[in-house]
Simulated assay, not measured.
Amino acid sequence: MSLFTAPRFLSRILWLDAASCLATGALQLAITPTLASWTGLPAPLLTGTGVFLVVYALLAAWMARQDPTPRGLTGLVVVGNFAWALGCIALMLSQALPLTGLGLAWLGLQAVVVVVLAELQWTGLRRTRPGRGQPQPA
């Protein structure tokens, strides 16, 4: 059995997603003015996305605790993660905001992390049978 077909693979990736979102959201909320000045991102954007990330982290943690992992919701998470990455990239390319080097790095890191998480979640969905958590042949 490979890591990708382990029965709790999706759950573990959702826990990782929840932890990363909670850490990012909490940081954005805790030091909004400082982060805004360091990154060039508007404080209201950091606050709004910070709240979203904390709420999302709670949902992802709830999903990770379910047995079996809710496949439909996980599919929505995959789409949402790819959309988040596209949003980060769009902000980086738009030149609509006075982003600093740290702001570009902040957005770029988020884009990379959520694409990796989305790909791992998608891999987990493809490798398990619906409703049974059984590995599918590769």
Rank of each mutant, 00 (worst) to 15 (best):
M1Y: 02
M1V: 01
S2I: 00
S2Q: 00
T5S: 15
P7R: 07
L16P: 00
A18C: 05
A19S: 11
S20M: 15
C21A: 14
A23N: 03
A23G: 04
T24W: 05
T24R: 07
G25K: 04
I31V: 13
I31Y: 07
T34H: 09
A36I: 03
S37I: 10
T39C: 08
A43I: 03
A43E: 10
P44K: 03
L45R: 09
T47S: 11
T49G: 14
T49I: 14
T49W: 13
V51S: 11
F52W: 14
V55P: 00
Y56I: 06
Y56H: 12
Y56W: 11
A60P: 04
A60V: 05
A61Q: 02
W62D: 12
W62G: 11
M63C: 07
R65K: 01
R65S: 14
Q66K: 15
Q66D: 05
T69Q: 13
P70K: 06
R71M: 06
R71F: 05
G72N: 14
L73A: 13
L73I: 07
T74L: 07
L76N: 00
V77R: 09
V78P: 03
V79G: 13
N81M: 11
F82M: 10
W84L: 06
G87K: 04
A90W: 14
M92V: 07
L93I: 11
S94P: 03
S94G: 12
S94A: 12
A96C: 11
A96K: 09
L99N: 08
G101I: 01
G103W: 07
L104I: 02
W106A: 04
L107S: 04
G108Q: 05
A111H: 05
V113F: 08
V113G: 00
L120K: 02
L120C: 09
Q121R: 07
Q121P: 02
W122P: 04
W122E: 14
G124Y: 07
R126A: 15
R126D: 13
R126S: 15
R127E: 14
G131Q: 14
G133R: 08
G133V: 08
P135M: 10
P137A: 15
